[in-house]
Each structure stands twice: as C-alpha cells, then as structure tokens.
Amino acid sequence: MTETTEIMTETLILTEALKTALTARFTALADDEITLSHRVAEWTGHAPLLEEDIALANIAQDELGHGTLWLGLRAALDGSNADALAYHRDAAEYRNVPLTELPKGDWAFTMVRQYLFDAWEVLWLDTARQSSYVPLAEAAAQALREEKFHLQHTALWVERLALGTPESTRRMQDALNQLWAYALGLFDPLPAEADAVAAGLLPDVAALQTRWLGLVRGHLEGVGLSIPSASELSASPLPYSRSQHTEHLAPLLADFQRVAREFPESQVW
C-alpha cells in the first residue's frame, strides 16, 4: 500500500491518520479478545460443574472469534496477517488492556471480570454499529448478538454468587475490589483516536464510561456488592496500561505462541 491509497466507503474518505486510528483500535480490541479468550479457555476441564466447562468454552470461542474479526478489519486496512500478528508480536507490542491478561483466578474472579468486560463490549459494539466506517458497523452488529447473551449470562452468575453464601459473597467482593481499577482501564482513549471519534468512525470511550458505570453499578449494587470509591482508587493508581503490561502477559504469550514459534518455517497449520 502507498500513502496515496484512500479507501472510499460511501461518502467517507479515510485519511492516513484515520486509518492509523482505526488500526490501533482494531488491534487493541483484538488483543483484548485474544488474551481474555486464552484465560477463559484455561477453565476447560477444570470448571466447578461439567455444564460450566461447556459454557465457558462457548465464551472463549466467541471472544476468539471476535478477535479474529477485528484482525480481519485491520488486515483490510494494512494488509497484515491475523496469525502473524497474534503469534509473532511480543508482550511489549500487545495492546490489550491489563484487565484481560490477569491470571484466571477463582470462579468469582472469572465471572466478575467477564461481566465487567461484557458490559463494556456490549456498549462499545452497540455504539460502533453506527460507525460511518461500514465494515466496522457490520462487524459490530455481528459480534453484538453474542455479547448480549454473554452479558445476560455473566449478570446471572454475578447475582447468584453475590447473593449465595457468605463465602461466595466474600469472594465476589474481593474479586470486584481487585478488578475495578483494571476495568476502568478499558475507557482510556487510545492516542490519536480523537479525530476518528469526531469523524463518527469510532465510539467515544469517555461517553461510554458514563453509560457503563450506570449499567454495572446498578447491577452490582443491586445484588449487595460495593464498588471501590474514587478516593480509594486515586490513592493507589494502577501503573499499568495498554502499553505498560503486568508481569502476567509475557508468560501468557509464551504459552500462546509456543508451538508457532517453535516452527518458524511452518506457514500452514
């Protein structure tokens, strides 16, 4: 591709700057889905109930499917290859939010993380359906169908565990305390995204945060959980971001990329 290439979608003209912003967002979305899917799949064979092995494997497949969808959108912009991006970038090049790379933890941790993420994703996709970049609008509509089910499913689990036994309530509150600050990281705007937002290509994540807070606060507090206060959060801000990962991402990628990197000459799997 040369820098003079311009992609026309209806009346929209994509400048290089807008393409860069879209590419960065698609990469961030894909990396979120790929890492989260990897963590969720770690439950397969180890869930608390055989039926839940099956349920979690559905979520893991759906998220990985969405990851592939986002990498496909990126490929349409820059000619990249999905597997090459997923399997041959280091932790320093991954752009997922630290929330999704944290180890799977217990069932409460898994369900709270998934719930917070699903709520974000439903809202992001719902807005992205209106994107003036048609391929994004179409992909968002497609992924949104599954995410709506995910959100219902994890909301159901949050309710049952929060209201179940003293132990389950305690585990849920612990998980929420640990995860909340990480979840807020979903709403950090990407560098250079502002113009794409202004042009109606990408959702405004700051505006989404308000909707998200309303949605999850209502449910979490409705089942008796308490959300860490703003003062608690500002007392110990997270040193992590999409470009500054926790120590957990590198080992995740070492597993994820193990075979692919062992056979660098193999193009076909």
């Binding site: 397969t44 064979g45 092995d53 494997a57 497949q61 597997d83 997923a86 692919a260 799997w269």
Partner: peptide, 30 residues
C-alpha cells in the same frame, strides 16, 4: 478425555486451530 487435549488449547499454533480445539474439547465435556 478433556485433559490430555485440553492442555494444548493454550499452545495451539493458529487462531483457527485454537478455535477448533476449544470446540472439540468442549464437545468432550458435552
């Protein structure tokens, strides 16, 4: 039977193979 193959979900060498293996091990649970 989920276990011997389940261990390999995290190592699958392509996105497609990972998806397929997740579905397969899921079927064993089913």
């Amino acid at each position: 039977g989920m276990l011997p193959e389940g261990e390999w979900i995290r190592f699958a060498p392509s996105l497609k193979r990972k998806l397929i293996l997740m579905a397969k091990v899921q079927d064993e649970a089913g």
